[in-house]
Write a protein that binds this DNA or RNA. Structure first.
Lengths: 286, 286
DNA sequence: ACGATTGTTCCGAATATTGGAACACAAAAC
DNA sequence: GTTTTGTGTTCCAATATTCGGAACAATCGT
């Protein structure tokens, strides 16, 4: 009785989202979030019938879900009855981002890494099989900064993602690997679990990952893992990474390898600062 | 059922923020969102007992809610069992923000207004009794840009908020006014509904609003309303505004009034562009 | 070691959700 | 003008979920 709808994929670019939250039985909340995600992930406002076709839920049920989401401010219904993401999502995220300890702790290290390399520096964290970008330091502010914060990319074909995966304990890694769909973004994208695992083994040995135009052509990066919590995220804890990214015409693989030490050192420093900055009993009041 | 105001046998007599979304009966989703908002709005990670004390929900119920929120990625549970905002909120907001039509349409007008005045320019939209900041153009990038996006401020004591309130149709305005709590942020903050309504009448007559250090001392701004949808947001439609903000030592009230024409013109231009850019039947495919 | 606090699980009772069907309403087709 | 199709909304009995008190387990403080 899982809300399968395994079919009906209407041009959802990497439509692996349907069973993303999969096994977790989160009851009514999970069903509402599935509808929310569908609307938010769409690239245009969706009308009732569009959503109905995508979810194949009964009309009455779907209508109630949408009404509740609109009432809560998570969705907004336009004058033409189409649904689009609600503004309350922004206020939630503002607080989530501005309060984030890892971002605050990492910031000076990102700045230093950017000063040393002159290229764009990213901070990202792993969530399921995706990397969520938490912060960015850019050479020139040609592209607007915020346009990247909160963006998600597949883990298996990005430097950040591979670095983060490489420090997952085996049991957790297997879970994630089982859910990956190997979509060939470029000629260099890993196309199988075997190729990815071999790459992860290399990354684990060297302590850094290289993305050689595996997600976007003409874009290369070198990344190193960051982990909070106890040993490499054995129990609860955040796993992520930092990276230095640049255009292929300016940044060779050799250049990336020359930077790998700096990236690894910065990543280790962030992990260390996070370990002493987040974990200890820091409950002032009470 | 009608509002369950006094029904709550849990005796929330303190009733600080429990009824934030108030009357809307959104069932299970609403209860989950209330818990989520509580944790996200806190200024530090909250433990189970903290949340239990604030909500006075039965422990079993609360525990299930929190578990579901964590499973959905809306909350994150740290190693010390404390809850903090989840990363999925960021990815939701990224899509909500980057897809937003009003922001895209307004951007060139904000840039122009900034070039004309040299001061910080904001775009915000009204949600209930609060203004949510959608975009910002800053003089110097001393403060990080994203730190403002998604931030919320009370409508009754900000230029943006008052401008937006001034164009609400009477029925909707009354609803909002009834929910405002007049907290005295500064010596100039409106302290009663009467004072606010009088100000709104002036604003409606002039077409622009002035915030004379009513929310933060040493900060003044001039704002004008933006409205999408049909006549001034009569039915469904977004109501918001744009503003020019500056420090009191540099920006006098007279200076703000001198800028009022520019701000009003820019706001009207945005409303116009939005009317032709969002409303018409713009469904290419299908 | 002991008691007190905190966090988790369990299960009958209460309640929200489910989903099919009927109902308005509009737009297109006849 | 009338019918037909399509879209969005409301209704209600059957059902699955949530509710919440209480028992249980784990942790902390002394």
């Amino acid at each position: 009785m899982a809300t399968s709808t395994s079919d009906g994929s209407t041009t959802n670019h990497a439509g692996n989202r349907v069973a993303a939250e999969s096994t977790a039985d989160t009851g009514t909340l999970g069903k509402a979030m599935a509808v929310l995600e569908l609307v938010v992930n769409a690239d245009r406002p969706l009308r009732f019938t569009d959503i109905h076709a995508l979810t194949r839920q009964p009309r009455g049920t779907l209508h109630r879900h949408l009404s509740h989401l609109v009432d809560e401010g998570l969705l907004f219904q336009r004058a033409d009855l189409a649904y689009e993401p609600g503004l309350r999502l922004l206020s939630f995220a503002h607080r989530a981002w501005s309060r984030n300890d890892l971002r605050r702790i990492a910031r000076p290290h990102l700045d230093r890494l950017h000063a040393e390399t002159g290229e764009t520096v990213h901070l990202g964290v792993l969530r399921n099989t995706e990397i969520i970008y938490l912060d960015k330091v850019e050479s020139r502010q040609t592209v607007r900064m915020e346009s990247q914060i909160g963006r998600v990319s597949p883990a298996y074909c990005t430097g950040l993602g591979k670095a983060a995966l490489s420090v997952l304990p085996p049991a957790r890694l297997d879970d994630r690997l089982a859910r990956i769909v190997y979509y060939p973004f470029t000629a260099n994208t890993h196309r199988s679990r075997g190729a990815l695992v071999a790459d992860l083994d290399r990354i684990r040995g060297r302590g850094y990952a290289i993305d050689a135009e595996e997600h976007e052509v003409e874009i290369r990066c070198v990344a190193a893992p960051v982990a909070t919590g106890d040993e490499a995220g054995e129990s609860r804890g955040i796993v992520g990474g930092i990276s230095v990214t640049g255009p292929a015409y300016r940044v060779t693989i050799g250049q990336l390898e020359a930077w790998s030490g700096l990236v690894r050192d910065a990543a280790n420093a962030i992990s260390h600062d996070a370990a002493v900055g987040l974990c200890p009993v820091s409950m002032p009041d009470r």
